[in-house]
Amino acid sequence: METTDPKHLYDTQQAQMNILAFWFLIGAEVVVFGCLFGIYLAVKSFTGDGPGPEELFKLNEIMVSTVILLSSSFTCALAIYFLNLTKKAWTLLFFLITIVLGLGFIGLEIREFTLYVGEGASISTSAFLGAFYMLLGTHGVHVLFGVTWIALLLVQLWLRGINQETAPKLFIASLYWHFIDVVWVMIFTVVYLIGKV
């Protein structure tokens, strides 16, 4: 039933439908993040007694997170490249790197938030901070979900090899991962870069 012929990995009707459904899910996610950005921009200047973006953000550290997440997108793409060649070991390796990078990103984000809270910039300090934590938090949870998801799929890949069931799943997870990355680029631009100037 299951072929590992690289040409036909995504050929089943179910795989096609899953991928299509996933694009619509991404559409929904675009609305979600669009609204979150909207909220953020609407209350960006409502800093109350708390710090504003200029005082708060430390661009250097954010640059590190950004580089980490962007390279995870790169390794993820590599993993898919090897997946399509049905090279299981390489696929596993690059997805593992992706996961590690993702975890690194989450770690940095948690560190960042703890720092801010330490400086007295908590979620209820001002409307601006509330929207900031909501937007970033939602993105962070997405990353966390992505990491867990890919990890689960890797176990399946490990146990069952590359076939018409595992390959589409990993492909979809990679789409998800790239999407999260794109959202991060938006966050980096809209929140951090524009916040600084």
Binding site: I39, G48, G130
Partner: peptide
């Protein structure tokens, strides 16, 4: 998102929708 926002306001103490600090 609207519901998430309301949840944050009610459970986690954000002030985005309040009359005083938010909108």
């Amino acid at each position: 998102v609207a519901l998430l926002l309301l949840t944050f306001e009610r459970l986690f103490g954000t002030v985005i929708l309040t009359g005083g600090e938010g909108n």
